[in-house]
Design a protein around this nucleic acid. Structure first.
Lengths: 205, 205, 205, 205
DNA sequence: GATGAATGAGGGTTCATTCAT
DNA sequence: AATGAATGAACCCTCATTCAT
């Protein structure tokens, strides 16, 4: 029994270490970029030796992919959205916006780090697209279609509309990363106005 | 006079060479990213020696800033927008979307390369924000305010609305870069639907 | 008594494990060379942990010396040669050649691996020379002197002649290792011709 | 004209540098082996920076191949042997032995360095065999066949005999490298006795 | 101004060895 | 005695930058 507990303690320590390294890397990548972060930096930030990194990841690239995976898993548009047709469509949109906001609060750094490389690394980009964008796109599209059928929103192309929505969310993130401080501080207002515009339009009267 | 002509000829030759190098660098940065492009690569692509690059740019980073400047200059939302209040607001939005599309057609690769670094290089980011984002934001905001005053669109916060519009444009670019092929192929449809939604909303009936 | 038996059982187990590790190392060294073989490779091949290797050998180098010793012990020109003066000298030479051939069949790989390091590691070289070359040289020299005294071969310097013989044997090994396939396939013919030449010479008539 | 001279001076300096690096590497490889020699060592020995090595050789391995090539070029059994049928066969053998001796005096270190790796690096081994062993073997074989036809030596299989000769030469080298000091100091005596034995045999009377 | 050989700091990665369990 | 995670020095190699020509 003693042994079992010890073993599991060890196992837990090991699992934790992998995670520690990954988060240290993520933080640094976001801070100064993948290429300007050295394995030495990561080792120091994670408080392990450089060699240890390679007991958990096969290469520096592998860390990036690891971060990718982490994002993928926690970054999907919540499945709960699927069973939320009972909410009105406005509430639905506000919920999505809120979810995104919280996700970015938590994973913004990592997303920023990965996004930088995605723009420039085809393999990473492919994975990002297939594992994050496509599922999100499909989820939204499906949801919109349903809402349209139920007459909760008017007849528009759900595939295009889903893209517009996703672009909106991505764009707000980019703008914020690039330096716009209003987006974060006025998120509530933005979410309200955005919902308002999308549902009512800006046409006068 | 002879001297003057020679000098100006020389100046032109020098300017041309500088440009050649910058474009070669831009092409390569877009292709494989800033960090994966070596000065040797650039020298070969521009058909000069590595040393020569340093006669025109003080560092590799300086090339990036040079590209930034190039983008800044051609990337501003056209000044003609300022004097286009006569157009209806829908036409105005469609014009912007069209302009953006054309700009991205031409400079998308470079923007992609620079954006990757922007996400991760504070100094570059600051310049990008100040030289491109803020002016665009202000232009749009000003324009919206004017339209609102003229009663062409209903009363909304022009500062937030401008951000939403910019986010929209940025987001569509990102989505396309990341792999969505529909955005390019269906640009017309997207522009139409987007305009439609923004003006009329998606609320049924 | 119980204890004694256990101890000896234990000793045997320990000796066996030491041997397992040594052979695993030998096999790998022969396959890809000393420096390209990692302690991890050896541990896997011997089905022990890396740490365990260090319970039996003080360092990776020590494994090489261990293999050296193994070779030294099984590689000596058979002692039986010493009491074989009754055979004719031709038979004697053929016997030596046959012995060498068999030895190389069995230990060629290890010899190859060790030889590679011998050429380049002074300490190993010294041991090889003192433990293998000198004894062989002396054995042969002594044997030749005896034969000469008995009038079975003509009067030649036995020290030099022994060296020539040893060089011959070493050279055939090297040539074979380096890629000559004939040496192995035609060993019988070579042994015959070599004996023939050494005893009768190649002068015509 | 000035320019031409300068250019050629530079070219000469460059060619010399490549050679300097190669010889420094060769010396060190022979001294402590390929794997124990670092590129830093080589740089220091050649009095250049580490980076400079890579302006002339694509990798550390490439240095080894460069040494190989050097040996190949200077290591071939002299072509003059081909037109030396007028000499008696004994003189011919002595000439070969003398040539080998001189070659090893000059290139022994490099040969030793390369040989160590050859034993353990298949690609290097293949090249060594094809570029050095086979040509030597064929040259000797051809020569022996000619001598046999002219009745200068008796009827023996020239292919096998050539191998025996080559083994002899290789073996003497190995023995010397491994620590036998007599071979070098008594080379004359050895050459004489070897010739004597090969032509007259050791059979008594 | 143009060249490209030379530089050397610094990069990612490996691996023999140690030691807590 | 056995384990294997942790270590960190050392490795080979790259590349932005310099400078003599």
């Amino acid at each position: 029994m003693e042994t079992t507990i010890q073993a599991s303690r060890r196992e837990r320590r090991i699992a934790a270490r992998k995670s520690t390294i990954l988060y240290a890397a993520g933080r640094l990548f976001a801070e100064k970029g993948y290429h300007r972060t050295t394995t030495k930096d990561i080792a120091e930030a994670a408080d392990v030796s450089e060699g240890t990194i390679y007991n958990y990841f096969i290469s520096k690239d592998d860390l990036l992919f690891g971060i990718m995976t982490e994002l993928t898993e926690s970054g999907k548009l919540g499945e709960q959205l699927q069973s939320s047709y009972l909410e009105g469509p406005r509430e639905f949109l506000l919920t999505i916006l809120q979810q995104r906001y919280e996700f970015l609060q938590k994973n913004g750094d990592m997303l920023q780090a990965v996004l930088s490389e995605i723009l420039v690394n085809p393999e990473l980009r492919r994975r990002y697209y297939e594992e994050l964008i496509i599922p999100s796109q499909e989820l939204l599209e499906h949801h919109l279609r349903e809402r349209i059928e139920r007459g909760q929103i008017r007849l528009i192309d759900p595939s295009i509309a889903a893209r517009i929505l996703l672009a909106m969310l991505s764009g707000l993130f980019i703008l914020q990363v690039v330096g716009d401080s209003v987006i974060r501080s006025e998120w509530e207002t933005i979410a309200q106005l955005l919902t308002d515009i999308l549902f009512e339009g800006v046409a006068p009267g």
